[in-house]
Design a protein around this nucleic acid. Structure first.
Lengths: 145, 145
DNA sequence: GCAATTGATTGATAGTGTCAACTAAATGTC
DNA sequence: GACATTTAGTTGACACTATCAATCAATTGC
């Protein structure tokens, strides 16, 4: 293989990561698609957030978030409560069960990342993440810098 | 959140890249999904390859490749020819039109990569790609290294 | 020759991404 | 206060992506 292009590299990495995370998740006994997991993570990270704020943070379509939330609520991992300041929206919080699941997911992810980055040291990883964000920023916020 | 996690960074980057590539592709006047593009790229990169070898190179399901190839052949961008050494498989080659399209796609991709990496210098980019591949390898070929 | 393997195809299904239409509440303007 | 506009969320539709299992024909190993 000559020199891999950036696009190939990104695709391979994405795929490897998702695959690994899925495996880890299943060995933890959880069966949730990646989008749901990331949504749950969003709620746990910022309890009291709204669907809107999650959609923005994740840069995903709000329709997708709505559906993921419906499933998470159906599974008893998240609850909606009325937003006293705006009756259009509801505040989102993880349930006790949601927090337990989140802890499992954290373990799975940590293990996945560890396996993925086994040949990188901390500073390499840090600069990798920094470069990733720099690139993503260049697109998502073309005005900055 | 302290620093962005690896998973967030990879997700963001993946999306940013796909989005950008799509845009570039459309401004070139081509309307093909990313998987088809990558498949065409595979054929152009290694004319005379088989569906199998593309699937392996791209680490994708062979069913997906079959379907993408059917579309590409239907669009007249790729042709199959009999493999004299194995009548089960066919050799794949781009048509003249396929090569033209590929050139357009190369331009689109180059532009996307350039925009994406505008804040990175060459050596940073190189080490980014190297790290990506290192991580992907750690999963895809857990035995190596 | 016959079993096992391999390249390719097909069908089915789940997950992801995107767009547009829609409801209801909130806000701005006169 | 009545109106248009904007905003949060929901719903429907559809294209794209990923994955698995079954099938078929050609090849390979015995």
């Amino acid at each position: 293989m000559p020199k891999t292009s950036l696009s190939e590299a990104v695709h391979r990495l994405m795929h490897a990561y998702r695959h690994l995370l899925r495996e880890g998740i299943q060995t933890e006994g959880i069966d949730l698609p990646v989008t749901h997991i990331r949504t749950l993570k969003g709620v746990c990270h910022d309890p009291g957030c709204t669907a809107q704020s999650i959609a923005q943070r994740m840069q995903r379509d709000k329709a997708q978030i709505t559906r993921a939330l419906n499933d998470l609520i159906g599974l008893g991992l998240v609850v909606r409560e009325d937003n006293p300041r705006d009756r259009r929206s509801q505040l989102l919080r993880p349930t006790a069960s949601g927090l337990v699941t989140m802890a499992q997911l954290d373990r799975a992810e940590e293990q996945a990342v560890q396996q993925l980055t086994q040949h990188l040291n901390a500073s390499e990883l840090a600069s990798f993440i920094e470069m990733s964000n720099l690139m993503a920023n260049a697109i998502e916020r073309p005005d900055c810098q």
